[in-house]
Write a protein that binds this DNA or RNA. Structure first.
Lengths: 194, 194
DNA sequence: CCTACCGATCGGTAGG
DNA sequence: CCTACCGATCGGTAGG
């Protein structure tokens, strides 16, 4: 006889992530989540201490997924291949992997102690990882050195925003390539460069 | 004897905007809002039919402000001056004018009919205005013609994202200029261009 | 004493 | 614009 606990936990996180993205942290109740999963509400509390624990578990899983994307990207050589790999991973990944980015603004609803702890982790992994890649690229002369790495990270994260947020894109791959092309080359025409 | 109703309405929107940005649509109650404004809860309902009406009133005011920024920007000649004017207006404007951008994701909590009506208005004014400016610039050869205007708008709105969202920036003017510089020139070094 | 739940209800608060 | 409330639902927990 096999325990179904791990599967139940997985289904809780999957349904909760979908509902949190759709309606926000305060937009769903533990009752609705329980109904969507197909268990009773007290059963949710058996698996997760409270609503915040459910939310933070989703964020941790998603952050681990983003971290893996960063590792795969950094294994490439050259900033073009690295960010291309990252953008491709983001556009090809299911909704689940992007949810960390989509749900990040909802962290404001989590109690300060738990929020700050996770935010530290998030910033270190995600913004830290991007910052490292861009700073090393600047060191190799592959990107402009006149802008602080912070601003480069900001610009790149801004360009990634349409890939993660809002309604699903019609042609995510093409949009990803277009955004990356703007990030590297800008929108000013450059007849000299083919 | 002067009626204080207009002032009360203004204060309701001001406090509500602050609270909605801080804690999200479902994160504040009409009781909290009444307390913050210094009126009773039923008094709120005297001025606005319901919670959604308060939220949508904030969005309409903010969209009118964004529309004025677009008008001022379009009066400039050349896409550089136009977007520069727009970014400067965004970074110099108080928090109030940016709230339409910050609160846009919270529209998902508004009932479909009222939401769709506003979203149409929003898209026509904001994305439509940006699209018009960028398409005309492409027609003048000031921006790349190989990317669809939709993608150019997406890229620009993505770059604007850090200006509006998240914690207030330390040096908004410099960040605005850096983001605009990436939008126009990209991050690839161009030794030939001074 | 464990995992995996159940039906019922707690004290408070939501929008109106 | 107030006091005084409503139907319902909120996040979380009781005993078994």
């Amino acid at each position: 006889m096999i325990s179904s606990a791990p599967d139940t936990r997985r289904r809780i996180l999957s349904e909760a992530a979908r509902l949190f993205v759709e309606r926000g942290y305060h937009g769903i109740s533990m009752r609705e989540l329980a109904l969507a999963v197909g268990v009773t509400k007290p059963a949710l509390y058996h698996h997760y201490a409270d609503k915040e624990a459910v939310f933070l578990a989703i964020m941790e899983v998603s952050l681990a997924s983003l971290e893996q994307m960063l590792v795969d990207a950094e294994a490439q050589s050259g900033i073009h291949a690295q960010l291309g790999t990252l953008v491709q991973a983001l556009t090809e990944s299911g909704t689940e992997q992007r949810m960390g980015l989509q749900l990040a603004p909802e962290l404001k609803h989590i109690s300060p102690e738990r929020r700050h702890s996770f935010e530290q982790h998030y910033r270190r992994v995600w913004m830290g990882g991007l910052g490292r890649m861009l700073a090393q690229a600047a060191g190799r002369g592959e990107v402009r050195g006149d802008l602080p790495p912070t601003e480069l990270v900001r610009a790149f994260m801004g360009l990634l925003y349409p890939l993660a947020m809002g309604a699903p894109l019609e042609r995510p791959r093409e949009t990803g390539e277009a955004l990356l092309s703007v990030f590297f080359g800008g929108v000013t025409p450059q007849p000299e460069r083919p």
